[in-house]
Design a binder for these strands. Sequence first.
DNA 1: TCTGGGGTCCTAGGACCC
DNA 2: TCTGGGGTCCTAGGACCC
Length: 366
Amino acid sequence: MDAFYASVELLSRPDLRGRPVAIGGRGDPTRRGVVTTATYEARAFGIHSGMALSIAARKCPECVFLPVDFERYRRVSRQFKAAISQVTEAIEDRGIDEVYLDLTPLEADARELALMLQKQVFDATGLSCSIGIAPNKLIAKIASDLDKPGGITLIGRDDIGQRIWPLPARKIPGVGPKADARLSQLGISTIGQLAARDPAWLSEQFSPRYGQWLHRAAHGHDDRPLDLNPEPRSRSRETTFQNDLHPVRDWQVLAQTIAALSKQVGEDLKKRGYRGRTVGIKLRFADFQTITRDRTVDTPLDDGTSIRRLAFECLGRIALERPIRLVGVRVGELSPADESVGTMHGTTAKPAPRSDEGTLPLFDEQ
DNA sequence: TCTGGGGTCCTAGGACCC
DNA sequence: TCTGGGGTCCTAGGACCC
């Protein structure tokens, strides 16, 4: 979807069309938050997603800032996916504004299909999307980005040298800022230059796996099938404080926040029918250093009280000596709640683990 | 007045087991 | 006065994506 959050907001604010608009935080650039989406008019001022709202406002004082309304975006997201399912049911969900479709079984001409998809989406939502059609997910994703907004880009196997190799290496999904910086140091700026390098050499510069993957990606190889029903791995809630917390003076606020986040994660898990064995917390300090602590138990849980207890145990292992800007609670190692806990296969007959619940492990580490 | 929130996957080291 | 090899699980951090 093109500039998704911003485009959704413009549906109800046609008066803002043509003006620079940025969506983010509470819509107040004097408060903490980042731009999640900027209209193309705002992008012309150098505003892009991830940028601090305060900086965006400095770059473009006449920009209109609106708060994020995730509930609404999720609703529109369901609408556009439902519209697509009129064309094909083979949909891999890639988040709120993106999908992969397997069009292989459809007989129609590729461009005709793309036009049909765009029409379905527009009729259902009033929004535009960009489509890439290619032999695999990797190339389709790159292609979908080449003609935004509203574009249709077809790339075949034989087009890779012509259409893909001239692009910056950063265009490969999976090459982020860090890898791109390292590639630049190595004198590699385009996908074609990457493709020309020896995979063994790339593996020495990065990790063996990543080096191999870079080589294959640069040559347009990708054999990942669509994942039509991915199992969730974790569930988390986090919050950034409007003002940093003092580690001692504001301890109560920290504790209350962790309790509230634990409760939310528990409700979330229950609603979706999952339990998890690993509970963790995340703290971000004023200097933006982020640390995590987690704890795995034998029996999966989904209730706020247990999550909170383990979260506090994790908190006890962190030295609180710096201002805190963010705290989060996470549950991982998920399994469906209706699954039996394994009394049949001896998981309960194992030797007793370290004392799990009920004790405060004040002296466990160090 | 710098830097959200919710995810996935990978790496690496240590404990522990056979 | 030297101390294997292979495997799993747990923990912490980090890169990356939407």
